[in-house]
Simulated scan of single mutants.
Amino acid sequence: MKRWTQRAATALLLLASSSLAFAQGIVREAPVDVKPALMTVSATPPDIRINGEAARLSPGSRIRDTQNMMVLSGALAGRTVPVVYKRDPMGLVHEVWLLTPAEYEKVGGVNTGDPNGYKRFNELLSLIWAARTAIGVVR
């Protein structure tokens, strides 16, 4: 009987320590080398439009929502969403992060041809990701 209680106590301790580690959550870092855009997903993904120009999602493309969860392109079919995105070496859209309309307003108009605009865009994007982490939106 004594062995059973020791094993149960050890298992309970391991379970408690693993849930504490999980509760700390995953911190989402601001993506590097991304561009803001409005992405329209066609009724037949992987065909999309980025700011009105025809584009295509790459095989294995990753779309993440505001909670850092993966979203299938079919779930966005027929919708236009504010995003920041990154292309692969072939020019296909490979990584996409969905933004809220308020976040897009903050970063969408930064690229005005100002040489410091890109730096300012990255600063704003880092602030957005930090705010999401602080309020617990991103886990």
Rank of each mutant, 00 (worst) to 15 (best):
G60K: 04
R7M: 09
V32P: 03
V96T: 08
G113S: 12
L15R: 07
A55D: 06
A37K: 01
S58W: 01
D33R: 04
V110S: 13
V41S: 02
W129C: 05
A102S: 10
L38E: 04
L13Q: 11
W129A: 09
Y118Q: 13
A77V: 14
P46S: 01
A43T: 13
A16C: 04
S19Q: 14
V84C: 05
P31Q: 06
G25D: 07
Y104R: 07
M90P: 00
W97V: 11
T44H: 14
R87I: 12
A11R: 12
V107P: 04
W4K: 15
D65V: 10
V96K: 01
M70R: 11
G108Q: 03
L127W: 03
S61Y: 07
P45G: 06
A16S: 09
L13A: 15
A30W: 09
L20V: 15
E103W: 06
I135A: 09
G78V: 13
I63V: 13
T10Q: 12
S42K: 03
G52K: 03
I50P: 04
P46T: 02
T66C: 09
L98R: 02
A54N: 04
R132T: 04
S73C: 05
D47W: 04
E103Q: 14
T66V: 15
R64G: 03
I63H: 00
V138F: 11
V27W: 08
L125H: 08
R64K: 14
A130M: 05
E105S: 13
M70H: 07
G60R: 03
R28E: 14
G91P: 07
A37C: 01
T66E: 15
V84T: 13
G74F: 12
Q6K: 14
R56Q: 11
S42P: 00
V96M: 00
S17K: 00
L76W: 04
N111G: 08
A77E: 10
R79S: 09
I135R: 15
R132N: 13
A9V: 11
M70K: 09
G78P: 06
L99F: 08
A9G: 01
S42N: 05
G74Q: 12
R87M: 08
R120E: 11
R139A: 05
G52E: 01
A102L: 12
W97H: 15
A131G: 10
D33T: 02
L99H: 05
K119A: 10
V110C: 12
L38W: 10
I128L: 10
A75D: 08
K119H: 05
P31V: 12
R49W: 09
R79G: 00
V81E: 06
R139Y: 02
K86L: 05
R132M: 12
Q24P: 00
P46G: 03
T40L: 09
N68Y: 14
R132E: 10
A55M: 04
T44G: 08
T44V: 14
L76V: 12
P115A: 06
D65G: 07
V137E: 15
V81T: 13
G117S: 15
N68I: 11
A9L: 08
V138L: 10
G52R: 03
G117E: 02
M90V: 10
T112R: 14
L76P: 06
L98M: 15
G108D: 02
E105Q: 14
V32L: 06
Q24M: 03
T80Q: 13
G91E: 07
V83I: 15
A43P: 02
L127M: 12
L38V: 09
S19R: 12
R49V: 00
V27I: 05
L13N: 08
L99R: 05
D114M: 05
G25C: 07
K86E: 08
